[in-house]
Design a binder for these strands. Structure first.
Lengths: 228, 228
DNA sequence: CTAGCGTATTTTGGATACAAAGGACCTATG
DNA sequence: CATAGGTCCTTTGTATCCAAAATACGCTAG
């Protein structure tokens, strides 16, 4: 199991992080990338020492990153045994989507209540960025724009707690979402625009409905993806 | 500002943690206790070195505890400046309660759908423990039982994500809840029992309504408390 | 006397070193 | 030959040490 790590053999597997000022942040992002990209397999045991060597930093930032990754559901931390890459399940996806639906519907309702022309314009701008990314075929940028959209929506709704919970669910969704994103990009933006229209009109019911449908379609897209 | 910390002068301010196996856990619990009890004032700057000395451990466990405390909303961590005790606001309480209402209603609905006699009995048992604590006047035990009740409810509902989100909100509520708890203890258990009845009957609507009313009454109790 | 700058101290961020717990492998015995 | 025990090695958990950043103070110049 434990491959022989010769001094030269591993160098290009994982690129050392750029030593910018906030090292933890860089390490954290590198590790998210490693997990999301699938270079680390679900269930795999992450050894702090190895990660530190490969990333070119000490164990300290790695540890802190691992703790944060646990809080966000990327890895599972067992006492005295270290970190294991979280194993995603279809059941978990459905639970995440249930939670997301609940949170997004309420967020949409609150946003519609605040009904602000300037806010609607801001949301539309982000939405169009996502569209552009889809046209360019850049999934990663699209997902980022998507997250920004949901974050902005939560801000408009004006409940910071709700926004944070949405963010937690959103981060966890990323794992699965990147599977379904390519199928959804085209229609997702249209659904966002419909949601924005409802919010701009101050129509709470319509906004909630749009949010629900958006989530449900994401669910269908995911299930269709994993079946293939 | 910085009091003169003579070797003997500080010893009994904060009791050193019992050096049980999981040191982090002990440090974390000690610090929650320090924040909740009010011995550390909101906005106060927590210096890692001082905490470490006073708790009788090194800075490392303290740092990890601080990160966890941040994730749970007890402290705010500013880059290169360290930890500051979170300053609670009335606005935040309302937002937390809004989120709690949303989550609890859905949890109650799902729990009612699962409708299981054995589960209802388990919930009732926890509820009665809380009642006993109220009668004994032990607020701390009551709050613990209360949290256990909500956790058990989430488990019955069968959505782990929802349960975790509820737990996050519940932990944050603790700060405020301990203010309102003394006023609520008596009626809170009765409301829980009404909720359990609705769940046992499989009546989703009634369960959701009970959950909503329970949250709303907590809100009223809190606002009444802080006004005095 | 006040405002701006430079230095010094404090405190966090990161690296290294040490101790303890867990798991794997090997051996000896029934 | 299978199993139980023990030892060794790997890996985490904790402590100490060094460097970099931020703040606060004091000094000087206007």
């Amino acid at each position: 199991m434990a491959v022989d790590m010769q001094s030269a053999g591993e160098a290009d597997l994982i690129r050392p992080v750029q030593r910018a000022a906030p090292l933890r942040q860089a390490v954290y992002e590198s590790m998210v990338e490693l997990v999301v990209s699938g270079r680390l397999n679900p269930g795999e045991h992450l050894v702090e020492t190895d990660l530190a060597r490969q990333l070119g930093v000490s164990r300290q930032p790695v540890r802190e990153a691992l703790h944060r990754l646990q809080a966000e559901g990327w890895v599972d931390l067992r006492p005295n045994q270290g970190a294991f890459v979280h194993e995603p399940t279809d059941n978990e996806v459905d639970q995440l989507l249930d939670a997301r639906e609940l949170l997004e519907m309420e967020t949409a309702r609150l946003a519609a209540r605040s009904a602000d022309a300037e806010a609607a314009a801001r949301l539309r701008a982000i939405c169009h960025e996502g569209e552009a990314a889809v046209k360019a075929g850049d999934t990663e940028v699209f997902i980022t724009a998507n997250n920004r959209f949901h974050a902005a929506l939560a801000e408009v709704a004006g409940n910071a707690v709700l926004a944070e919970l949405s963010a937690i669910v959103g981060r966890r969704m990323r794992w699965y979402y990147r599977l379904a994103a390519p199928l959804r990009g085209e229609t997702s933006c249209a659904e966002h625009l419909e949601l924005i229209d409802a919010i701009a009109a101050g129509d709470e019911k319509r906004a909630a409905k749009a949010a629900r449908q958006h989530t449900e379609r994401t669910r269908v897209a995911y299930h269709r993806t994993v079946q293939s």
